[in-house]
Design a protein around this nucleic acid. Sequence first.
DNA 1: GTCTATAAGGTGATAGAC
DNA 2: GTCTATCACCTTATAGAC
Lengths: 201, 201
Amino acid sequence: MTTEEQILVAARKVFIEKGFEGTRMQEIANEAGINKALLHYYFRTKEKLFEQIFTEVFQKIKPAFSNALHPDPDFQAFTNAFIEGYLNLLDELPFLPRFVIQELNRDPKRFVALMEKQEIPFDSIRQMIQREVDKKTIQPIAAEQFIINLIALIVFPYIAQALVKDIFFNKNEAAYHEFLSDRKQKLADFVFNGIGFKKAF
Amino acid sequence: MTTEEQILVAARKVFIEKGFEGTRMQEIANEAGINKALLHYYFRTKEKLFEQIFTEVFQKIKPAFSNALHPDPDFQAFTNAFIEGYLNLLDELPFLPRFVIQELNRDPKRFVALMEKQEIPFDSIRQMIQREVDKKTIQPIAAEQFIINLIALIVFPYIAQALVKDIFFNKNEAAYHEFLSDRKQKLADFVFNGIGFKKAF
DNA sequence: GTCTATAAGGTGATAGAC
DNA sequence: GTCTATCACCTTATAGAC
């Protein structure tokens, strides 16, 4: 591994865990086994290093939306794939929603600018849902409401991890993971029921 | 207003907007129209001042849960009151969920300790939901899943305000508020549908 | 109680030797 | 490229005059 890669690995770990403000350049240096000066030699500023990590993390979120890019996406397939794809991603990267939300709120403008570069196909998803409403296969609901419901139900347990794990399950790790895996099986049903869609099996 | 009250008003504003780490004692002093030294004279440390504000904010969250304390709480009435009560609170204090989540993640241990002092009746709510599952008036769902769904759907649009307002609605303030008021009317239906409960009108 | 001045510690960033 | 040493700045907190 080159020094640059070592730095990126270390920065990813620390930034994701502690956010931009909570991160110390010294900690990244320690984690990478080098000194502070070298960080600045490679990436000039903390801000520049952070942006590289943040952009990279965003790439991970994108694929979950990509089904909607098909010319004639199927609503049910999209929804199932979205939920499953996202929850699988969160098995690997459970701190991702917390990180994204934290940075969204720290500097909304920069976040929005970055989102726009990512070209997430919200319009395509909106149209797909609206078609379903028009066909009356689901109860009338604004596409935005549906998308927010979907994202909220998926990511909230990760954003509020400490609340769920420590308070609902008394810090019982096993019970918490049981909760997450139970959720994975049943979330789609809750969502489809919520809008009156009869899930085909 | 006494100086102490002026400080508390200023601290409330700045802490809630910027979180603990984002807040500067100097900014609170400016906001209160006094100087830094006086802040420390009244509250000794930033941490102590913050805890006072945080505890106080938590008191606002509590009443929404209190209906479940009745000897025989009605599930439907509780759910409706919870959603409506919470959303009304958020009309006044829209930054509250963002603040709470931010501080939850900054120091989960302190957060949990504080929650325990608040005596929120999660057990009572759990039992109420479980009774409904046993009566088969709703589809089987773990009480924890239901509570998390409820909270997630209520607070997420506020936690991710910038995402919803700036990206979904192109920074259109009116469209965003229309979204929130539309949500207030329809969220309960979505939730009741989600668990197969037939809402009585 | 309220102020000014300053201490004490930490942080991002750079200079300069190797 | 990599290091040590250090600068310049900021932040919480306190000392001490009034």
